[in-house]
């Protein structure tokens, strides 16, 4: 390309740099629409992190109890709901007993909704509230409640479930007396990552009960040090981990669709980064705000 060609390219890049932000938003909207409507049909191959989590749950025997601590709210639903759904599907196939508690006030209702939808093909769970599964909901000072749960689980949750119904009326309560390896076999923390508080609380306070962290993509690097030391038994990283989990279950669902769409998004952002930096290089005197 001659000097006139370079000058023209630089002028185009400069013009791009002056684009109204709303045009950039429109481009994002179009990219997201394409990602949703025509996700690239890329295969999803499970990686070792997700495989480890899957195998831990596969080792459960019928009737083994699993504790699920929900530490996310509406903000992480799109990423963690599909992951929770996939995990619940596997647990129901393993005939596990499921006890859900929440670290956020809306988490109890969110988990309950995901559970009821996932149980649609499992009548024993759909009709088995209080027998196969239970939702304890949220309590103030959730970290204190977690330690109290290691001594007396029903008492730590004030003796009522998510809906405020007395736990004494459910047969399951008699079986799940404390959050210890005596009564539970495995635990999950679904962590939004507000300073990875839930995961830190769990690894600090509960001993002997292996824990799998379902993390949002942003938090996946943050929890790796704990996986490396064995404080976390396994992790399901982000929407990709959820998609891998669906592949392992042989039931591609919402996570797989979103994961495939994210490939398009990654290319789009990469393009913007390249254009932005090329524009800055072509116009070095311009101060960026």
């Amino acid at each position: 390309m001659g000097s006139r060609g370079w000058a023209r390219a630089a002028a185009v890049l400069r013009a791009f740099g002056r684009l109204d932000r709303r045009l950039v938003y429109l481009a994002a909207l179009l990219c997201a629409s394409a990602a949703v409507l025509w996700p690239p049909p890329l295969p999803v191959r499970p990686r070792p992190d997700t495989l480890a989590a899957y195998r831990l749950a596969q080792a459960l025997r019928p009737g083994n109890a699993v504790f699920i601590w929900i530490d996310y709210g509406f903000g992480a639903q799109e990423e963690l709901d599909p992951m929770l759904r996939a995990v619940l599907l596997q647990l129901m196939r393993r005939d596990a007993v499921i006890c859900i508690a929440s670290r956020s006030i809306e988490g109890g209702q969110i988990a309950e909704t995901v559970m009821r939808r996932a149980a649609a093909g499992h009548p024993a769970y759909l009709e088995g509230y209080g027998v196969r599964w239970i939702d304890l909901g949220y309590r103030p000072a959730p970290d204190v409640a977690l330690r109290a749960a290691t001594v007396n689980l029903p008492a730590a949750y004030n003796g009522v479930d998510q809906a405020g119904l007395p736990l004494a009326r459910f047969p399951l309560t008699a079986r799940l007396r404390a959050l210890t390896p005596e009564f539970f076999r495995l635990a999950y923390v679904f962590d939004l990552g507000d300073g990875y508080a839930a995961m830190m609380t769990y690894v600090s306070q509960v001993t002997g009960l292996p824990m799998i962290v379902g993390a949002i993509s942003m938090e996946a690097p943050v929890i790796q040090p704990f996986v490396a030391t064995g404080q976390i038994a396994a992790t399901i990283p982000g929407i990709r981990g959820a998609a891998e989990y669906e592949t392992l279950l042989g039931a591609p669902g919402p996570a797989t669709a979103l994961d495939r769409g994210s490939a398009l998004v990654a290319v789009f952002i990469l393009l913007l980064l390249a254009l932005g930096n090329a524009g800055a290089a072509a116009n070095p005197e311009r101060q960026e705000g």
């Binding site: 938003y25 903000g75 639903q77 799109e78 209702q109 952002i269 800055a280 960026e288 705000g289």
Partner: peptide
């Protein structure tokens, strides 16, 4: 809870994707 609260807040969180897009283009040098 399902049809008002959840979509409202999830969308508010999703707005950040637009700001990240804009930042990727304009500020990330």
């Amino acid at each position: 809870f399902l049809h008002v609260l959840s979509p409202l807040y999830a969308t508010m969180y999703g707005l950040v994707a637009f700001f990240i897009t804009s930042a990727a283009y304009r500020a990330f040098r």
